[in-house]
Each structure stands twice: as C-alpha cells, then as structure tokens.
Amino acid sequence: MIDLNALRTQAADILETGEVGAVIGWRRGSRGMAAEPVAIVAPEEAASLVWDPTCFHNLALYLVEERKKPAQRQVHGGKPIAIVAKGCDARAVTVLLQENHFGRDDVYVIGVSCEGTGVLDERKLAQVLPGVEPDGAAFDGDNFVFATSEGERRVPAREAMMDRCLECRNAHPKLNNVVFGEETPRDFDAPFAALKRFEQRPAAERWQFWQRQFERCIRCFACRSVCPMCYCDECVVDSINLVVTPETTAAEKADRVRWIERSASRADNIGYHMTRALHLAGRCVDCGECERVCPVNIPLRLLNNKMEREAREAFGYEPGASIDLPALVASFRDDDPGQFIR
C-alpha cells in the first residue's frame, strides 16, 4: 500500500531543496472521479497530489512538452523535472533516455508501484457497475473501492482493470530515484495473452477485423498526441510541414511527399496506424494510453503488442529495459531471422 503522505512529503522536499524545478503528478480533477495531470512548482502544492486507480495517464508525455521541447526549458531554470511514474511510465522515461531526449540527471523519477493491481478501465467499470458514476476511487488490496452516492462499492480490481495492467510485465518501476510501494507478485494474464488469442484467427478474419476497426478511425490523433514516443517534429499524416521556417523555399514546401492523406478513409487510416505501429516498434512500452484515449475504441494495443512481441522473440529486445540499449531498428545481430529472404 502506498503512503500518499510520504509521496507528498517527498515531492515537497525536493521542491523545497531546489533539487527539482517542478513535479509532474496527478491531482483531483473536475471530470467525475478522474485524476488529472498537474505540474506543481511550489512545495505547498504537494498536498494536492493524489494516487488512486484513476491515475491512468502516462506522465512521461509531459517530459516531451509540445514536440521535442524538453520540459525544463519551459519550467524553472534548467533544474531537473520530477515525474511520478508507474512501472510502464518509468519504462517510457527509459526509452526517452535511450533516445537522448534528455539526460538522466534532468529527470527525477518518483516511482509508484501498482503492486498487486493496476489502473481503472472506465469502459469496463461502466459494464461492471452499470449506471453508477462514482465520485472517487481508491486502491484496497485486490479491490478497487468506489465512493458513490449510495455508499462504498467494492469491485475486484481484476474485473475493472485496464487490459494492459492485466498483462503488465513490470508493475514496479525499475528506473527510479525513489520508489513507493512494494514489488508484489502478480497473477493476472500472461503477457501477450490477447495477442496470442488474436493470432489464432484465420487471416481473412483478421483482415475483416482490422478493416472494421480502422474504418471507424476519425483521425483525431489522440493516440499520437498522448504517446510519449510520438514526438516527431513532423508526422507523415500532417497535411503541412510543421518545421517550415521563413527560409523554407516554395519548392521545398511543394515537394513535401504526401504519404498519407488527411481523409479518414480506410486506406489512409490503415496507412496511418501501420506506420505508427512500425515507428513504435522497440519503443512502445505498452502503457496502453493510445487505446484508453481512443474515442472510437480501436484496439491499438494489439498492433503495438505484436511489434513488441516480435522484437522480443525475433531479436531478443525488450523496450524500456535499459538506458544503454541501442534502438531496435538502429541495431542488428548477425543471427537476425533471414529465412524469409530469397
């Protein structure tokens, strides 16, 4: 069980001593019971920090503020930024470090272990407690406890947890400056369980499935926006080039390749999501945020899981495992699979 007061004290202390310039964490929001991301800069604000099952956001995103601008440039004079990170979030920070997005000394990781549970899936909760819109959520051992107008409702965490948490490989943040909570044995689904089930389906069925999913995409780009790894200055799906300067010539602008059109059409949606999956290969840490935020419920984790499992099985590569690893597609081994090549 995490002692929230200890976490708050820690946050206040490192702000007080000036060890960090800001702490990115969660506080109570006004959208129902959900927590919301916040960056605090004063020690007294630490009292507003929370930790509960609605802390689903991967806050590593905010370390990459607004397309490749390190957060510390924006906040308080070059001091490191602290981030409250779950196991998956800490793996995301590791990948950002691997990619030299900032240095290890620029970030202070306040690890929070999900211990024997994980974070809440609001869509599942709506099925488990239909018609109930709780005012608050808390961890309690193997359960989530919800405060409702009719009193407390306990739900086994397993029933209302995110799929990503059921399949979590490492709920205890390995990369940390300080960590709260225990490393608890977990007994949920095996990693890649849903992926393996999906792969059993025949090819024609898989295609029908993905076609239906992608035809639904509205190209709101929430999956891209919420992803800490989607920090490119310019993305193949943007209809204009975001890195133009007054010096960019008309010819350069006109010559920009339109790989994927803006239209939310089947082919363009598939092009977008496949490109994204490939670009995240070896980088995606399965925080599952893309799937959570998708307003039309596209199972994006499946795609990313596929790439992650291939990286692991074919190349022995585990994203977010170590700062010292080279990127998956910037490295190779002599015995990489090549039987498919004629």
Partner: peptide
C-alpha cells in the same frame, strides 16, 4: 491548458 495534449477529440466529437 497545461495538461492538454493537443488532440482533436474535443472538436471532432
């Protein structure tokens, strides 16, 4: 807007 991620959900929906 501090936490805003700049996606199009609010406008598209």
């Amino acid at each position: 807007a501090r936490a805003c991620i700049g996606c199009g959900i609010c406008t598209f929906l």
